Simulated scan of single mutants.
Amino acid sequence: MPIQPEGAVILVAEDDPFMLRLLGQYLGQEGYQVIEAPNGKAALDLYVLHWPDLVLLDALMPGMDGFEVCRRLQAIAQGNPAPMLMITGLEDEKSVDQAFAIGMADYVTKPIHWAVLRQRVRRLISQHRLEIQLREANYQLQQQTLIDSLTQVANRRRFDEYLLQEWGRCVRDQVPLSLLICDIDHFKHYNDHYGHPAGDRCLQQVATTLKQGIHRPADLVARYGGEEFAVILPNTPLEGATVVGDRLVQSVQNLSLPHAMAPTTAVTISCGIASVQPSANGLPSDLVLSADQGLYQAKAQGRNQYQAICVLPNGTQPPFGAVMF
């Protein structure tokens, strides 16, 4: 892919004012935006302000040399910084090995051969941009494998992974974990009466409403299967989960989606809620089973409501009715 210099930002760290100005003028003429840093400390500060496409580092600077700047930029960028090109008068094997060992992408020697510098700058920026595009493409591909294509919420695979992950975390942190399983009431009758395209739109609207009804980044809405959705609420006791459950039931009802085949004449959901203090001896499936039992009770009680169950650490439940809401 040919590099387009316009818009590419290069951070130059050089303690020699004349060389700094010379590098800035040359790279500017090549079409790059140049940020000048007179020392290593300034380079670190300017890096987090501009997040450049390339860093040119003088190897020998007073106070903080180019090697130390490279190490610190690795930490700042969490091991994935912009490529760094060292400008050095050191040509000994040890210095070159050290530069590559700490993460330098390449180096040029003084006095600078400008044609060599030009080609290496273009190559490193081009590679950096391609790596960014590749990471973004891989991320998008990964997201597609974890998202339900119809409703655009997490799919069953993501639900299973996340529930297991949060179960382990809650065991370590000794905090509660809650789960909601929601089912669209009389959905088969809805599909039979309005048709499957309308049923798909109904699923999409309900999924969007459920997603809008959770407010913390750690909470997850997933399509559990068919017309069922699940909501994982980490670090949430039963009382907090029932607040969420009530809000979700009311929000779907407030959509006022017509459902001529339902007693309420509108689309509603039933919701089973379960909460547990996870333990190393317990299983996430205990929580799923209890939430499913809560859903069964909500439907048995007339639908368009939630029922909640507290699961004991050993996976059992208190006597029926003692903790139902």
Results as ranks from 00 to 15, higher is better:
8 A>Q: 15
109 T>E: 01
171 V>I: 15
184 I>S: 09
36 E>C: 13
58 D>S: 03
98 Q>L: 15
70 C>A: 14
159 F>N: 04
294 G>A: 09
81 P>T: 02
107 Y>I: 02
258 P>L: 05
288 V>A: 06
10 I>M: 07
143 Q>K: 14
270 S>E: 12
32 Y>H: 08
188 K>M: 07
262 A>D: 14
230 A>M: 04
5 P>I: 05
313 P>H: 03
237 P>H: 13
86 M>I: 15
26 Y>M: 11
262 A>F: 05
162 Y>F: 14
127 Q>H: 14
269 I>R: 15
294 G>W: 13
289 L>M: 08
29 Q>W: 05
142 Q>F: 06
10 I>S: 07
59 A>H: 11
252 V>D: 03
119 Q>R: 06
183 D>C: 07
207 A>W: 08
293 Q>N: 13
310 C>T: 10
266 A>N: 14
172 R>N: 02
287 L>G: 09
84 M>A: 12
317 Q>G: 01
127 Q>L: 14
275 S>M: 13
55 V>H: 14
133 Q>L: 09
143 Q>S: 00
42 A>D: 15
215 H>D: 01
52 P>K: 01
28 G>N: 06
162 Y>M: 05
257 L>W: 11
120 R>M: 05
186 H>P: 00
66 G>W: 11
162 Y>N: 04
278 P>G: 10
26 Y>A: 12
214 I>P: 00
53 D>F: 02
24 G>E: 12
33 Q>S: 08
234 P>T: 09
176 P>R: 06
60 L>S: 13
199 G>E: 11
